[in-house]
Write a protein that binds this DNA or RNA. Structure first.
Lengths: 198, 198
DNA sequence: TCCGATTTTATGACTAGGTACTAAAAGTAA
DNA sequence: TTACTTTTAGTACCTAGTCATAAAATCGGA
């Protein structure tokens, strides 16, 4: 049976959202109407033509890709840094960072922000995490803004740097971690050969 | 000066790689040759036309998007799991996971794999990480495959579950961590109110 | 300098997947 | 039946090409 205009347009939107690569001709066949009807529908619903839709998808992914690599260098935006002393970054928890069901942020994103910040605060091109002890103090929900504060607090006997990172949502502590950082410019000289990078 | 054919074709490939959205006409102008020359070049280099290029970019991003959300639920592919006992996942280190300079995997990806696995092994819908102590034993490079093995080893007094995760590249241990996991089905009953989620 | 090969440009016919517009036909409700 | 909405048809035009043919320009070598 041929659906009503309203129903057809609803399904049309859904169909195109799911598969932007479908042509008017294919849509016409799918809904058993003429190509012209489909075009009228698109016009009424302000749905652009196939090529424009594809271009939009492509543009988005291209922008994402450009953003993906450099931005992944540091998780969160660093808003203040004093090399080898302290640093602050912010990270907005979005849909892609949470468990679908509970909307609670996955731990590794909070870890990633803190870890990135710990790497960044070290004034060394090859700083890497050797060890970390972390604690998720309270859950962080979608939409919340996490402010991570890193402080260099000392050094180990092996020449590693200790960085304390505390992350807050507003005034509340949500995450805290102690990071033991390896740095390259200190030549390895003691027999601790098999555990120093991350 | 107009470049030689060879040089022009080299630059053409590069230009299109950088910006797949450029038309033959724009390319012709850029290289001060006719549109036909550009088309001959594309033919010789097997570079598809603009619309096909755009479609390819879009297809890729579309596939990525479909993969992105559900796959992000777990970092790495789980290949074996025995609920509340053990689990194994593999994670291939790619370009996007490493420091550009050193090609060494960023710590948080290894953490994410281990953390995801620790969450997955717990037979509970709302399992969350409460605490973790981790160690990056050796660096992992781009192209390496990391196999993470999680084992439930015990419980704390608070009803939390302890999960040990060891990650290997081949036979070599590269990461190890102890995760203290919070689970929802154990009603909070002791006064430990302010530290249980991640 | 001329020859032949390579490279470049021009031209025309055709394509997909449309837009924009006009007009007619079909369906529907009072 | 009339009035209105909805659907279909048809035409001209568009972009960004393909494919094929042919002519013009350029280049290297004897």
């Amino acid at each position: 049976m041929r659906k009503s205009k309203r129903e057809r347009q609803r399904l049309l939107q859904e169909t195109i959202r799911e598969n932007p690569f479908i042509t008017d001709e294919e849509l016409a066949e799918k809904f058993s109407v003429s190509v012209q009807t489909i075009r009228l529908d698109r016009l009424e619903l302000s749905i652009p033509e196939l090529r424009e839709r594809i271009k939009n998808v492509a543009r988005q992914s291209f922008a994402d890709k450009v953003r993906a690599l450099p931005l992944e260098e540091v998780i969160g935006d660093i808003i203040d840094i004093e090399p080898d002393a302290s640093a602050i970054s912010i990270f907005d928890v979005k849909e892609e960072h949470v468990f679908r069901r509970t909307r609670i942020a996955r731990g590794h994103h909070l870890f990633a922000q803190a870890n990135s910040l710990a790497v960044a605060v070290i004034h060394d091109e090859l700083a890497l995490t050797a060890k970390a002890t972390i604690r998720f103090v309270r859950q962080v929900k979608e939409g919340e803004r996490v402010v991570a504060k890193a402080k260099v607090t000392g050094k180990t006997a092996h020449g590693r740097t200790i960085v304390e990172v505390n992350s807050y949502v507003g005034q509340e502590l949500v995450f805290s971690g102690t990071f033991e950082m390896y740095r390259s410019n200190i030549e390895k000289k003691d027999g601790d050969s098999n555990e120093y990078r991350g």
